[in-house]
Amino acid sequence: MAEPLLSVRDLIVEFPTRRGTLRAIDRVSFDLKEGEVLGMVGESGAGKSITGAAIIGLIEPPGRIAGGEIWLRGERIDNLPMEKLRRIRGKRIGMVFQDPLTSLNPLYTVADQLIETIRTHLPISEKEARQRAVALLDRVGIPAAARRIDDYPHHFSGGMRQRVVIALALCAEPELVIADEPTTALDVSVQAQIIDVLKEICAERGAAVMLITHDMGVIAETADRVAVLYAGRLAEIGPVRDVIKQAEHPYTAGLMGSIPTLTQTSDRLVQIPGSMPRLNAIPQGCAFNPRCTRVFNRCRVERPDPIDRGDGRQVACWLHDPAEVRNG
């Protein structure tokens, strides 16, 4: 098998506080193949955004990567000095954040920001960079791009701004784009447009996408594979269709059942009792065990690691341990 584009191995991210060290990410491992769209879902506090931040080296101190490795095409990037990391960020990894207003500098025109980013990473002239920027804006669906490129960010509407951010993330031809809740701040009718643009343009350029979102609908439409995080741990990872149609982890199953859909007929939604534990009170054993309907003794004592089921799916649940399957 070809070497994965991105490989995250046993990643641990910790935040020291005065009441003890909080483990926001606890031994998370996954791979991202070239050109693949990996969805990363989880509820707030599950650690999905922190995983993204760890990959691009943007963990806010005092938080730190306390263990594990991150490899980008065979090169280890989690322990690089700031200067080298900065060169990777933007050039090889592009970023799209939730709020388009904060990812654009309000004091510079869109042209300034695009051209500067392009020229920082690519050895081309100002004129070429501008041409490239206009072409890119046009591609992400900004009407009259050649004229609007000289506008300031506040001249654009929310959806248009997010298109600019996507152009900015892609202007240096990165191999990987990390999109953190790219549609959450947008209206429903605009969300679909943005997701389509992001997906198409990344596919065209062969960039892989790590799509971080709490919205299962967005994942269902966009991702090839999906990773489900719970309390800083990987609960399940697999092809998106399989995970959505037949979730194997009880948490994923509950999550899917709790989403109201346009075709559902029952009066009540499936609900998972309780709420996700705070990071300072993660239960022993499986983090989900107090809320799980299929819990048994082992779950309360021993933490399950992702179990490879051989069909491209991994499930961190003792129900899927071959030993348990045999016994019961």
Binding site: R19, N280, A281, I282
Partner: peptide
């Protein structure tokens, strides 16, 4: 961490 929990 379990100790913190008991305190709370």
């Amino acid at each position: 961490m379990a100790k913190i929990d008991a305190e709370e």
